[in-house]
């Protein structure tokens, strides 16, 4: 993704300010930022599901060399359907309650890749087994409400890998789960990613999670990239003061008595000034 800018239609300020980031094949990149920093917006832009009110002002989204934004909507849809997938945030609303699991998992294989129903069904069964669901055949025939939240999240992970996509966007996949399930789901995503060699864009606000699953990360503030680093460079010493403060604000499990450290005001002022400067450059340009 290169120099992507977007805004709410008609609004004076941009939501995404010249965001550039890339995910290499097989890489897991964390996308971190506080609420409203635009992390989910980036994920949605990549997948072509931006809300209608948001317009892309400039920039390009390159997928294996093709600019998705230049494709006709139907082509883009087909292209994204064949090469990208989403692991959504809330497993409770991410499955259609009135359809069985099987068809929901295999839609893409049949519609976009032209597989036969039987072959797709077999593939779905294998994937469910891969995410440690014990009775895949039964689950394929069930409705979402018959499964627990953790089960549904596993189904969604399996479904995301169904078409062997090049890129998966995981939009805070553990936020809606309770802590005990979180860890298991994280491990599952990491395992699946490693086994299938898929590039993964991991959207989260949890640096702890990033440190466990990602190889590199991008820190976002106000729609502006403030840090872009490999994980091994970032954790000892983040380059940007905001990223440093963010890291300091992460509660430490080793020392539960320390109170939460807010991001210091001067750091916020500094990064805000950077945003303003970027906007000035944009308006003048």
């Amino acid at each position: 993704m290169r120099n992507l800018s977007a805004r709410v239609r008609g609004a004076p300020d941009r939501l995404l300010r010249d965001v550039s980031l890339s995910v290499a094949p097989g890489e897991v990149r964390g996308l971190v930022g506080e609420s409203g920093a635009g992390k989910s917006m980036i994920g949605k832009a990549v997948l072509g599901i931006l809300p209608r009110a948001v317009e892309v002002l400039s920039g390009e989204i390159l997928l294996e060399g093709t600019d998705l934004l230049r494709l006709a909507p139907a082509d883009r849809r087909r292209r994204i359907g064949a090469t990208c997938a989403l692991i959504p945030q809330d497993p409770l609303t991410a499955l259609n309650p009135s359809r069985r699991i099987g068809p929901q998992m295999t839609d893409r294989l049949v519609d976009i890749l032209g597989w036969s129903r039987t072959k797709a069904q077999g593939r779905a069964r294998d994937l469910l087994a891969e995410v440690q669901i014990t009775d895949p055949d039964r689950v394929l025939r069930q409705y979402p409400h018959e499964l627990s939240g953790g089960m549904r999240q596993r189904v969604l992970i399996a479904a995301a890998f169904a078409a062997e996509p090049k890129l998966i966007v995981a939009d805070e996949p553990t936020t809606a789960l309770d802590v005990t399930v979180q860890k298991e789901v994280l491990r599952l995503i990491a395992d699946m990613q490693a086994r299938h060699g898929t590039a993964l864009l991991f959207v989260t606000h949890d640096l702890g999670v990033v440190s466990k699953v990602c190889q590199s990360l991008t820190v976002l503030y106000g729609g502006l990239v403030v840090e872009d680093a490999a994980l091994r460079d970032f954790f000892p010493a983040p380059a940007h003061p905001y990223a440093r403060a963010l890291l300091a604000a992460t509660p430490k499990y080793t020392d539960p008595d320390t109170s939460l450290v807010p991001v210091p005001q001067e750091v916020l002022d500094g990064v805000q000034a950077q945003v303003v400067a970027a906007d000035r450059g944009w308006r003048d340009g």
Binding site: A85, L86, D90, A94, N96
Partner: peptide, 28 residues
């Protein structure tokens, strides 16, 4: 606004298809 509609669109389903297959049965 539900995630499953977004998922369906990522999975390459067109607007008409999404409306008829994903949304309509749940409004029925």
């Amino acid at each position: 606004a539900m995630d499953y509609v977004a998922s369906a669109q990522v999975a390459g389903r067109g607007r008409t298809g999404t409306m008829l297959v994903e949304v309509l049965p749940n409004v029925l």
